[in-house]
Simulated scan of single mutants.
Amino acid sequence: MGLLRYTTYRLIQAIPVLIGVSILTFALANLTPGDPVRLMLQGQEADQETIERLEAQYGLDQPIHERYLTYMGGLVQGDMGHSFHRNAPVSELIANRIGPTLLLVLSAYVFALATSIPLGIIAAKRRNDPFDHVSRIVALFGVSTPSFWIGIMLILIFAVQLGWLPSSDLVYPWWSPETYGHDGYGEHFYQVIRHLLLPMIALGTLQMATLMRVERTQMIESLQGEYVKLARAYGVPERTIMRKHAFQVAQLPIITIVGLNLSTALGGSVLIEFVFDINGLGRLFYEAIIQLDYQLIMGITMIIATMFVIGVVITDIAYAYIDPRVTYGESE
């Protein structure tokens, strides 16, 4: 089975999963106590006739199963519905907010991978040395500490006390320097990094700690393998052993964690966006839940679920690319 065929096959397999997510989300959102129309009209005087007219306008007067089928029919055609409270298409609202969230999540993963893999390798090579003990303490702190608390501590230390880094007003790299009054692209990207550094570390610490622990364990296991002992017996340089024999095999669990933890990172971004005042998808999702904006809740959920499915498929493909023993569903 070729790469394209395998990818198509895995995406088709994901369709029932997405349908299940849509049914569960739609049921939970619509069965939540509260009236979205009354919330929308909060602070305004409205008679029962106005309320009934708005309910009919948004299809809220129909049975829940009819509303679901209507929504899915529009979704298949690319229509994600209309937000009750913002009076705007859901797709437009998501498009305006998804950029900051993706920037935050991707930068957090870059930080996690760039730090965890080298630290995990060094800790494995220096097993039971002081560096190894310190790395395990750091990993334990990272996996047991909430990301929002780390974010608050970073703000208090580096923004409030030291004044080195800003704590809000994220600078977007896709906007022009003139938008922010920056003198050229050099200063623009410098400011992007300065504003992104604290939320990136806050969100990426959990991923970094998890990956470092797995990297250390896998590297220790790989370095104790028979193929490594044989390579050393033949006089293969230690650097070559680390790079070609131990490192590549140890990355398979890392790939799995990176792919499956995408949903965790997206969920953690909700709190980080609030802590650092970032107008991203997570914050929009929270506001949609508070306002019982059913269409917006469904749209964001389906986008996040689709991103997760794509992450899993990419993980499977990367598995087969790194480990030749893994094939794209071919039988022996």
Results as ranks from 00 to 15, higher is better:
residue 82 H to I: 08
residue 116 S to G: 03
residue 84 F to Y: 15
residue 107 S to W: 08
residue 87 N to R: 14
residue 125 K to G: 03
residue 96 N to Y: 01
residue 139 A to I: 06
residue 145 T to V: 14
residue 109 Y to Q: 07
residue 152 I to G: 01
residue 85 H to T: 10
residue 158 F to R: 09
residue 159 A to H: 08
residue 154 L to N: 12
residue 175 W to N: 14
residue 108 A to P: 10
residue 98 I to S: 12
residue 119 L to Q: 01
residue 116 S to Q: 01
residue 137 I to K: 07
residue 158 F to L: 15
residue 70 T to V: 06
residue 167 S to A: 14
residue 96 N to Q: 15
residue 116 S to Y: 00
residue 94 I to F: 06
residue 77 Q to E: 12
residue 63 P to H: 01
residue 125 K to L: 15
residue 128 N to D: 15
residue 70 T to R: 15
residue 165 L to F: 13
residue 158 F to M: 13
residue 132 D to W: 02
residue 112 A to H: 09
residue 159 A to E: 08
residue 148 F to I: 11
residue 68 Y to M: 05
residue 114 A to L: 11
residue 101 T to V: 03
residue 115 T to N: 10
residue 130 P to D: 03
residue 73 G to Q: 02
residue 64 I to V: 15
residue 95 A to D: 12
residue 110 V to M: 13
residue 83 S to T: 08
residue 146 P to Q: 11
residue 104 L to Q: 08
residue 69 L to S: 06
residue 132 D to I: 03
residue 91 S to C: 04
residue 174 W to Y: 14
residue 124 A to C: 11
residue 94 I to K: 04
residue 69 L to M: 13
residue 70 T to P: 04
residue 117 I to V: 14
residue 85 H to N: 14
residue 170 L to Y: 07
residue 77 Q to P: 04
residue 62 Q to I: 03
residue 111 F to G: 00
residue 85 H to Q: 11
residue 123 A to V: 08
residue 124 A to G: 11
residue 102 L to G: 12
residue 166 P to L: 02
residue 164 W to F: 09
residue 69 L to C: 06
residue 84 F to V: 03
residue 73 G to V: 04
residue 146 P to N: 10
residue 145 T to P: 00
residue 173 P to H: 09
residue 155 I to C: 08
residue 148 F to T: 12
residue 73 G to C: 11
residue 82 H to P: 00
residue 79 D to W: 11
residue 76 V to G: 07
residue 116 S to F: 00
residue 78 G to M: 01
residue 132 D to E: 01
residue 110 V to I: 15
residue 140 L to P: 00
residue 148 F to C: 10
residue 172 Y to I: 13
residue 142 G to N: 01
residue 175 W to G: 02
residue 140 L to Y: 00
residue 101 T to Y: 03
residue 70 T to M: 06
residue 161 Q to A: 11
residue 118 P to N: 02
residue 62 Q to W: 00
residue 90 V to S: 03
